[in-house]
Nucleic acid binder design. Structure first.
Length: 427
RNA sequence: GUGGGUGUAGCUCAGCCCGGUUAGAGCACUUGGUUGUGGCCCAAGAGGUCGCCGGUUCAAAUCCGGUCAUCCACCCCA
């Protein structure tokens, strides 16, 4: 039996883990400023959480979930997205009783059984935010502003665009679907094979089709979803757009946007890029006023979104956007020459670490030259050198790796050091 | 689920079409280049079941079949 990682799964090793954490904290830092607090929820839920949450006709539920039966005979699924679980937790912990508005964010791994390709793995990280308890357009506006600020602080605002739309309430959408079918059916033959099927399964998606032929047909449609919106939905959209303009958020209204999940009502939006091949969405979300009730909670309006962490990292890489890493931590190398010095070096390293410094040492009895090379490679700013000479006189040599200056000091001086700044005073 | 590409050293790849000496390069790694000093340079060294299985052949990294993995596109989505 071969021991290997599952198809579509990834290990993340050192420099990337650092970047991942940096991206995460950059994003969640913005969320906190908007008053969102973290919630963690299980990776595994009863399958019903997702089938009633996302809608059991959606692709995600129908063919992309990792679903299996437990020993106890329950059907469970690994989470394919965050919202349904958060809503379940929101209801189950009666968070709606604690304050009229609840603002939550989450971050973690999601699982979907899809064929992997660029920007799409079977397990991937999402950071998302959900705002419960307000149906005011200003809530939509706030959450979009938060998403946009997170994107901006990542340095990506020039590489993505924000598109939004209103898809109204289910009834309005049904009527729109009907008109679409009515309009498109006579022209069925000019649609691509896929869209001919969609005509009966999911006509809204035809608007999203990228093939030229379909685009041509759909561009002739003399009406849009907006013509089918209720007055209430239209006012909601107008107020949202007004607020976004007030905040100078560069949105584009795109009536072709439809989302793959059933739970959206009125506002939907996507942050997309043209730099990641066909996996072009880096973040997406919308309003879902009916979901909480559908999952057994009290009537509660809500808006939220999720960001794809790996896609954001890919985009950062492709666009050469550097996140300014928060001041590289200073490194000290403790170098030893000779068998006797080794033990002393280890003790010194230990002492310095207790003072909060990052310290590297060599375990083996290696040459000074090789230890210096290593110090250089690890990017040490200072080296502490303990050799036979130093040992004899109770000294240590301190070398500034940048300037090459080197001086000796009494060993007990190390005990008085308070952090890295004190090295700088010495040399 | 459907189509196409690619699997050779830790990494990036050359060699394959036109089978034939010990399978290569760059980067990285180790050790040296006078006694205890890094970055540059130089030298040496280590490191490979040529994805796997089978076939053709005197001979296969190279040709053929299968298989697995991976990437890309469709689809779907973050």
């Amino acid at each position: 039996m071969k021991i290997a990682r599952l198809h579509g799964f990834k290990d993340i090793c050192y420099p990337e883990t650092e970047k991942l954490r940096l991206v995460e904290s950059s994003i969640t830092d913005v969320f906190k400023r908007f008053g969102f607090s973290e919630i963690t929820i299980p990776i595994l839920e009863l399958s019903g959480v997702y089938s009633t949450g996302l809608g059991d006709t959606t692709d995600i539920v129908q063919k992309e979930m990792y679903t299996f039966e437990t020993k106890g005979g329950e059907w469970v699924s690994m989470r394919p997205e965050g919202t349904a679980g958060v809503v379940r937790a929101f209801i189950e912990n009666s968070l709606y009783r604690k304050s009229p508005v609840t603002k939550l964010y989450y971050s973690g791994e999601m699982f979907r059984y899809e064929k992997p390709q660029e920007g799409r793995q079977r397990s991937f990280n999402q950071i998302g935010a959900e705002l419960f308890g307000s149906r005011d357009p200003l809530a939509d506006s706030d959450i979009i502003a938060m998403l946009w600020l997170a994107i901006t602080e990542l340095g990506l605002s020039d590489h993505v665009k924000l598109e939004l739309n209103s898809i109204g309430k289910p009834l309005e959408r049904e009527r729109y679907k009907e008109s679409l079918i009515e309009f498109l059916s006579p022209k069925k033959d000019s649609l691509c094979e896929n869209c001919q099927n969609r005509l009966s399964t999911n006509p809204l998606r035809i608007l999203d089709c990228k093939t030229g032929a379909c685009r041509e047909v759909t561009s002739d449609i003399p009406f849009s979803i907006h013509d089918h919106l209720s007055e209430q939905s239209r006012e909601h959209l107008d107020a949202l757009l007004f607020s976004l303009r007030e905040k100078s958020i560069p949105y584009r209204l795109n009536h072709r946007i439809v989302r793959g999940l059933d739970y959206y009502t009125d506002t939907v939006f996507e942050v997309t890029t043209d730099k990641l091949g066909s996996q072009n969405a880096v973040a997406a979300g919308g309003r879902y006023d009916l979901l909480v009730e559908r999952m057994g909670g009290p009537q509660t309006p809500a808006v939220g979104f999720a960001m794809g962490v790996e896609r954001i990292m890919l985009l950062l890489e492709k666009t050469g956007t550097r996140r300014n890493s928060p001041g590289k931590k200073q490194i000290v190398c403790v170098i030893h020459i000779g068998e006797n010095a080794r033990g002393v070096a280890v003790k010194i390293a230990d002492g310095l670490r207790k003072k909060g410094l990052r310290v590297e040492t060599e375990y083996e009895n290696k040459s000074l030259k090789s230890q210096m090379r290593k110090a250089n490679r690890t990017g040490a700013t200072y080296s502490v050198i303990i050799g036979e000479d130093e040992l004899r006189k109770d000294l240590f040599s301190l070398r500034n790796m940048k300037t090459g200056e080197e001086k000796s000091f009494p060993l007990k001086k190390l005990a008085d050091l308070e952090g890295h700044g004190d090295f700088r005073k010495l040399l």
